[in-house]
């Protein structure tokens, strides 16, 4: 029996196109792939250390540019937590009409307690309110005022989990229409105004952060472009020796990632130092605010996000820049 020659052997082999990849067993291909990446990383480290001063300057520029968006992110993530915390404590003060009957007050309290949006209720009679006022001001008003001009008050604590802006608005309207109620005052109004301003600043900061992030992409891209131009001969010779575009591109991608990671790392250091430097001012502000606001510094997620952002910007900038040079050398 004549054994038929396989298409990949013998004379036919001479007419085949060269393979896309070396025909190695799978394990050898994995080893080759790992080895290629190890060499590319080694080359990237060489790129960075070969002109150390220029690399340090670039890394510091990236770090400075990333510091501002990173600081915004931490500040706003802190405020986001506090917004909910402040909203939880927000309530409504209901000033009752003068000379209101005790039965009416009792009825009002019962009606209010039945509302699901109301978590808790406390009643202060006109005498209690006056006593509280005297205690806070530190004077005996009886000598200055003929009677008690202050009304009785019901303080409502809202259940924010079961409330929305619309339901609170409806509640406020309903309370105002109740018999015996003189004035309804939303205690959370100033907080809402504060957070409206914070939202505006947040959006402006986001815009600025996007510009700065784009700047980092441009900085890394330009650095890699200059690096690739410096190693133009190496790229040319490598392509002549049979290097694929991926092989040529890989060290530059690693360089971009290293620039981005180191820039991100130093941005974290800058943010940490910045918060450390501003700590007395932050403490002063937070101690004077309601509910003891505290600003937390960098946590693990923040650091990981900044490093990841740096690495992604690095790989993106390096990809664009190295591709341009590789395409220029069209041999």
């Amino acid at each position: 029996m004549i054994k038929q020659e396989s298409p990949s052997t013998g004379a036919n082999r001479r007419h085949e196109l060269p393979p896309d990849k070396p025909q190695n067993p799978p394990i050898a291909n994995v080893r080759l792939w790992l080895n290629n990446h190890k060499q590319a990383l080694h080359r990237a480290k060489f790129h960075l250390t070969h002109n150390l001063f220029a690399s340090i300057v670039t890394i510091l520029v990236i770090a400075s540019t990333l510091t501002l968006p990173a600081s915004f992110q931490i500040l706003f993530s802190n405020l986001q937590g506090k917004e909910d915390q402040l909203a939880q404590h927000s309530g409504i003060s209901i000033f009752l009409q003068k000379n209101i009957a005790q039965e009416t007050i009792q009825q009002l309290q019962e009606q209010m307690t039945a509302k699901p949006e109301i978590k808790a209720l406390s009643y202060l009679s006109a005498a209690d309110v006056l006593a509280e006022f005297q205690a806070s001001v530190g004077i005996n008003s009886k000598k200055l005022l003929p009677g008690n001009p202050l009304p009785a008050v019901i303080y409502l604590t809202l259940d924010m989990a079961n409330s929305s802006a619309t339901t609170i608005q409806s509640l406020e309207q309903w309370l105002g229409e109740l018999h015996g109620v003189d004035l309804v005052q939303m205690d959370s109004q100033w907080i809402n105004q504060l957070f409206a301003i914070v939202d505006l600043v947040k959006n402006l900061s986001l815009l600025l952060a996007l510009f700065l992030i784009f700047s980092v992409l441009v900085i890394i891209g330009n650095t890699i472009r200059l690096l690739a131009q410096h190693y133009y001969d190496e790229i040319l010779v490598s392509k002549l020796m049979g290097a694929t575009d991926a092989y040529v591109r890989r060290p530059f991608l690693y360089s971009g990632v290293l620039f981005g990671l180191l820039g991100g790392f130093f941005a974290c250091v800058f943010v940490f130092l910045g918060f450390l430097w501003l700590d007395p001012e932050i403490t002063a502000v937070t101690h004077n605010s309601v509910n003891s606001l505290t600003i937390n510094g960098l946590n693990f997620t923040d650091i990981s996000s900044i490093l990841l952002l740096g690495a992604l910007l690095g790989i993106g900038g390096a990809w664009i820049a190295s591709n341009r040079i590789i395409n220029e050398i069209s041999i």
Binding site: H15, P18, D20, L240, M241
Partner: peptide, 17 residues
Amino acid sequence: GLDLADISLRQLPYFRR
């Protein structure tokens, strides 16, 4: 035995080797 006109850009590096 291989017509070089058939070699694509992707195959070129392997031919150069």
